[in-house]
């Protein structure tokens, strides 16, 4: 399994390449490539990020603060936190269970299972919302039963949580599976032979080995859970103060031409993204050090 966001052991080997004549280019070529890359980077990554903060503060601090302390904004923040607070632990438990069964045991259909776990990433977020409308919506499978019992899922908070769980489903599992596979099962088997029960084995042997991968998966899950737009948009119904998450709040403000307020709310999400990237970089750094110390990395 190779994924675009898998925690891995990294070392900067640039000096090694640049010190040998056979593996480096003429300075002019290096200059052209670095400049072109940085230009592309600035144009497509740095400028959009800067635009969010500049637009947010375009009309001054006060407007920005006022937009963020608006009751609808606060309720959107609260709903976003609730959705993340439910979906992260659910997918964490699932991820650990899935990784334990897949990495520590052999069984038929394992590759199919891994592919199915990845499925939510290949499905458009819009479809992720649609499937729950088809199951729980007024005309869905369970629609009439739910309305008889006065339970609202679609256009209510449970639907938002479900959609969030779906789009963040694979993160923890896909981080942990390669880490646990690389670890092998000898250490756990030794613990069991020495008399540890299942929980003790996991707590004292497995967990220290996977903690960085686990944290990495949780950060990615949380970032996506708080930022999801498409899937949540389909099941939310956009009821202000009730079923609006922060990204949906941004959309509503934007479509009402309240640009400063929209960018103020967006800057909160952009700040969250920056915090996520900082923690992620820190985890990569710590994990690299842990691997350097123990030497237990298979690359």
């Amino acid at each position: 399994m190779s994924h675009a966001t898998t925690l891995r052991w990294r070392a900067d080997k640039a000096a090694r390449f640049e010190s040998r004549a056979a593996t480096c280019e003429a300075p002019a070529i290096k200059w052209v490539l670095v400049t072109a890359s940085l230009a592309f980077f600035t144009l497509f990554l740095l400028m959009p990020l800067a635009a969010v903060f500049v637009e947010a503060f375009a009309k001054g601090w006060r407007t920005c603060i006022a937009a963020l302390s608006d009751p609808d904004a606060l309720s959107a923040v609260r709903l976003t936190l609730i959705a993340a607070a439910i979906s992260v632990p659910l997918n964490l438990v699932f991820g650990v269970a899935a990784a334990w069964s897949i990495a520590k045991f052999e069984f038929r259909g394992k590759h199919v299972l891994i592919t199915l776990i990845d499925l939510p990433f290949s499905v458009s977020p819009v479809i992720a919302g649609l499937i729950y409308v088809l199951v729980f919506g007024a005309q869905g499978w369970l629609g009439s039963w739910l309305s008889d019992h006065d339970i609202k899922i679609i256009f209510a908070v449970p639907g938002i949580v479900l959609a969030t769980v779906f789009v963040t489903f694979p993160f923890v599992a896909r981080e942990l599976i390669p880490v646990m596979q690389a670890q092998g099962r000898e250490e756990e088997e030794a613990a069991v032979v020495l008399g540890a029960n299942g929980w003790q084995t996991f707590r004292h042997v497995t967990l220290p080995n996977i903690k960085w991968g686990l944290l990495y998966g949780v950060i990615l899950t949380n970032a996506r859970a708080m930022g999801e737009f498409g899937a949540v948009s389909v099941v939310s119904g956009h009821i202000r103060g009730l079923t609006n998450t922060l990204p949906l709040h941004v959309e509503i403000l934007y479509s009402e031409y309240q640009f400063s307020a929209a960018f103020a709310a967006a800057s909160l999400l952009a700040a969250l993204a920056l915090v996520t990237l900082c923690i992620k970089t820190w985890v990569e750094h710590r994990a690299a050090r842990a691997w350097d110390n123990t030497g237990t990395i298979t690359s």
Binding site: T5, P48, A223, G227, Y254, A270, A273, L277, K280
Partner: peptide, 19 residues
């Protein structure tokens, strides 16, 4: 640069859209 390459993963899509 290396850290910010992951920005599109971390930045909510709605924010990217309006930016």
């Amino acid at each position: 640069v290396d850290a910010l390459v992951d920005l599109p993963f971390a930045l909510p899509t709605a924010v990217a859209g309006i930016a």
